[in-house]
Write a protein that binds this DNA or RNA. Sequence first.
DNA 1: CAGTATCCTAAGCGATACTG
DNA 2: CAGTATCGCTTAGGATACTG
Lengths: 108, 108
Amino acid sequence: MEKDIAKVSPRCPIRTTLELVGGKWKLLIIIQLTHEPKRLSKLKRDIPDISEKMLIQELKNLVDSELVFRKNYGEVPPRVEYELTKKGKLALPLIEHMKDFAEQYTAL
Amino acid sequence: MEKDIAKVSPRCPIRTTLELVGGKWKLLIIIQLTHEPKRLSKLKRDIPDISEKMLIQELKNLVDSELVFRKNYGEVPPRVEYELTKKGKLALPLIEHMKDFAEQYTAL
DNA sequence: CAGTATCCTAAGCGATACTG
DNA sequence: CAGTATCGCTTAGGATACTG
């Protein structure tokens, strides 16, 4: 009995993945957190095209899905850092695969 | 000089990939074409949840991006088959990686 | 059979002003 | 600094009727 790629239920892993990292910004945010945790203001500077609303909204989504951890230092003025969780780090190889796909596609 | 995952230009491979296979249906259609070419009516039956409009629209997108080839037999009544191109087959490993990601995520 | 055409809703995205 | 709140535009997605 072999694993068949064509067997997909309506609630399938593909859909799960698209929900977790789909959309315009989630993967770009994850990429920015690859090497070290960053504060909101730093993320804003590093992804200049994103609107403040989308950045905060997508960070919230990533925190809710446990891909990103929100570390609140509870200081005044506010100091919050965002970092990848273990689950979040699972996305890094996927990102590489997606880059590979794009490059192979372009090369063909 | 090492390859740095954090270096992403606005027009980056990630975005390319999301455009090619993002959205609710493109990957499901590609999956359906994994093993053999299929006619529109067959795809409709195999992906019962998709609306006719979306199926045709996404097939058109996939044909435009050269992931899928539209083979028109020019018969009456009409007979058209859709099959993966070489570029389209590049998506199959990516799909596996996306499944892997979802499964690892769920397991954690 | 393989599509078009039309109309509609929901979601994604964005700009900007404001707050503790 | 790290957010909220509001408004509006644009795109994605869908239901249904029709056509060669």
